[in-house]
Each structure stands twice: as C-alpha cells, then as structure tokens.
C-alpha cells in the first residue's frame, strides 16, 4: 500500500513537472523541472520493483544528460534574451490543434492498452545481478550496439562541434586552371 501511495505521489509530481517543462519560459527552470520529472519517474521505477533502474535514471539521465542541457542553456545565456522569439510561450491559438491531437493520441493509447488482458503476474524481479547476467548473455548484441551508438554520438558531436569553421574554408573559390 505504501508503495502505491509512493507511486501516486510520484505520478502526480511527474505529470506536473513535465507540464511545466513545456510551459515555462525560462530555459533554466525548464531544465530543472525536467530533472524533477526524472526524479519522479525514478520513484515510479522504485514502486515497480526496479531499484537499479531508478538509480540509473537519476545518475545517467538527471546526472549526466540534463547537466549537458543545463551547460548549453547557461552557455547560450537564454534568459537574457527575453524579447527573443526563442523563449516566447506558444499562444493559445497555436496550442489548439496540436493539443487536440496530443489528447487524442493519449486517449487512443489508453484505449488500446485497456483492450489487453489484465496483469497476470506481479513477481517482478529486482536483482541487478540477474539483470546484468541477462544483459551480457541474451542481449549481448544489444550492448555492443549501444556501445557503437555512443561512439557515433561522440564522433558526431565532435565533428559537428568543430564544423563551425569548416564552411568558411570550403566556400573559398577554387582558382580556375588557365592555360
């Protein structure tokens, strides 16, 4: 029961903070709201008997990825540009169609989920050791692929980040060969 209360608290918090991410005008606040949302989801993981993933969520998502966001936001100093369109909130008229569509999507997913059979078992496993064994036996290829994706992300980030100066050299006209 305590776990269920924890779940509902976390769920409400997740929905609220995630909504704030979309709504808020200040990018730093948005990042902080997202971090809170991630913490809430981590709590949901705990209530789903997945403590290891809860920790991973906090460490990797909130700890590593969101810090990267925060770093970029602080570097670009977005809250200093209040008049800029970039931080403007969407108007109500702009919200109508996408909002309706998103709502429709939500309803559709919920409907399609409820069409299935109810939960058969609750005996979720929570042992990180077993998870590790599973990862490195059955999902061995997936682990390899994840590593490659990370490598590609690293190389891509490096290349694009460096690429700011490349076009200026590329655009230099090539001298015509004249005989």
């Amino acid at each position: 029961m305590a776990q269920n209360i924890l779940f509902y608290l976390a769920a409400v918090m997740a929905v609220a903070t995630t909504s704030m991410v979309v709504i808020t005008r200040n990018a730093v606040y948005a990042v902080l709201y997202l971090i809170m949302s991630l913490f809430a989801v981590a709590l949901v993981f705990l209530s789903l008997n997945a403590p290891f993933l809860a920790l991973v969520e906090i460490i990797v998502y909130a700890g590593a990825i969101m810090v990267l966001f925060l770093f970029v936001v602080m570097m670009l100093n977005l809250q200093g540009q209040r008049g800029d369109e970039a931080t403007k909130r969407p108007t109500r008229r702009q919200m109508i169609v996408p909002g309706a569509l998103a709502l429709l999507l939500l309803i559709l997913i919920v409907v399609s989920l409820s069409a299935g059979t109810p939960a058969a078992t609750n005996a979720a496993l929570s042992d990180p050791k077993l998870l590790g064994e599973l990862l490195f036996t059955k999902h061995y290829l997936g682990v390899k692929l994840s590593g490659i994706i990370l490598l590609i992300g690293t190389i891509g980030g490096l290349h694009i980040g460096r690429g700011g100066s490349i076009p200026s050299t590329m655009e230099k006209p090539i001298d015509d060969v004249t005989h």
């Binding site: 169609v97 996408p98 569509l101 429709l104 999507l105 559709l108 997913i109 409907v111 399609s112 069409a115």
Partner: peptide, 16 residues
C-alpha cells in the same frame, strides 16, 4: 512534427 503526430494518430486509429 505535427504531421508525424497526425500520422501516428491515424495509424493507431486504423489499427484499433
């Protein structure tokens, strides 16, 4: 993104 969203909604509707 909105067009994609519209498409996703349409596909799920058809599947349902």
């Amino acid at each position: 993104a909105m067009v994609m969203l519209f498409g996703a909604v349409a596909i799920i509707t058809i599947l349902l």
